[in-house]
């Protein structure tokens, strides 16, 4: 019913891709490097990125096995401890990401339905203001309210990274040509059928790029978990800084960067594979 709402029969249909708020919000995404356009031409980039990660990892392993470390450093950088930190970091990222998807995608879908569409500017406006908040401030404030630990960290991560998924879900759905929705309804598909068979498949590229953005944001932001006892690779960096142990600091930083790159790459691969044929 989309095209039918506004005014009668002018023969002109506004191009949904040019809605000012969609444009505006898309450009405000901090890490939306993302536009599906890039993912398309980029087989070479898709190959290059894991090679870079592998080389980085190799360099780190070589450095680690050739440097002599003090006792403290060796304890912190033992294979088992290191692996635990990486796993913990991943755990934070994945748990938060799953919650984000469960909240943001249905919300995004709901906000693009005709009945709720009028709340869209409000939500997007709020989300943009929220996005301007520094992550570290959010962590500290939530810790003051909910205490330290894993749970609080997850809450902070979810709050901080829900926006890209929410926004890209909405932008993706709004970007679907209103005429296709009308064609679907016109041939007797129910509203739900149009959503699942036409709108969502067509919005998938944009939505996935939002998910990838959120994942990368999560890996990065999870380094701040160390400040509120959430664990992860941030602990290494933080310990390195407080104890002036460069080996710890660099280990943490390098591993987090590699992890972020690896996850970004995985996201790109998924985007490439899941892009509906025919687009």
């Amino acid at each position: 019913m989309t095209a039918a709402t506004g005014r009668p029969d002018t023969g002109e249909r506004p191009d949904p891709l040019r809605r000012p708020e969609a444009e505006q919000s898309a450009s405000r995404d901090r890490r939306d490097a993302a536009s599906p356009v890039r993912a398309r031409g980029g087989w070479r980039a898709l190959v290059l990125q894991p090679v870079l990660v592998a080389l980085g990892l190799l360099a780190y392993v070589v450095w680690r096995s050739t440097t002599t470390l003090s006792d403290t450093e060796a304890r912190q950088l033992g294979a088992a401890t290191l692996w635990d930190s990486v796993l913990r970091h991943l755990q934070l990222t994945v748990v938060a990401a799953v919650i984000v998807l469960l909240i943001a995608i249905p919300l995004g879908i709901a906000l693009t339905r005709p009945a709720l569409r009028r709340f869209t500017p409000l939500v997007i406006g709020l989300a943009n203001v929220g996005q301007a908040a520094p992550a570290i401030g959010l962590f500290v404030l939530l810790a003051d309210w909910l205490g330290f630990g894993f749970g609080t960290t997850i809450v902070a991560l979810v709050v901080y990274s829900a926006l890209p998924v929410l926004r890209n879900t909405m932008v993706g759905l709004q970007g679907v040509d209103a005429r296709l929705v009308e064609a679907g309804r016109g041939m007797g598909m129910s509203g739900a059928a149009v959503l699942f068979r036409v709108e969502l498949p067509l919005a998938v590229p944009v939505m996935l790029s939002g998910v990838r953005t959120a994942l990368v944001l999560l890996v990065g932001t999870a380094t701040l978990a160390t400040f509120i006892a959430g664990g992860g690779l941030g602990v290494l960096i933080n310990t390195g800084i407080t104890l002036s142990l460069n080996s710890l600091l660099v280990s943490g930083a390098v591993l987090v960067a590699l992890l972020a790159l690896a996850i970004d790459w995985l996201g790109r691969v998924v985007e490439h594979v899941a892009r509906p044929k025919g687009l």
Partner: peptide, 25 residues
């Protein structure tokens, strides 16, 4: 251009806290 896009995309994946840490060294 591809290289520049790659650098900016990859650069943005590096967590700020990690980069600050590395720069401290």
């Amino acid at each position: 251009t591809g290289l520049a896009n790659g650098v900016s995309a990859i650069g943005l994946t590096i967590p700020a806290f990690a980069l600050l840490g590395i720069l401290l060294a």
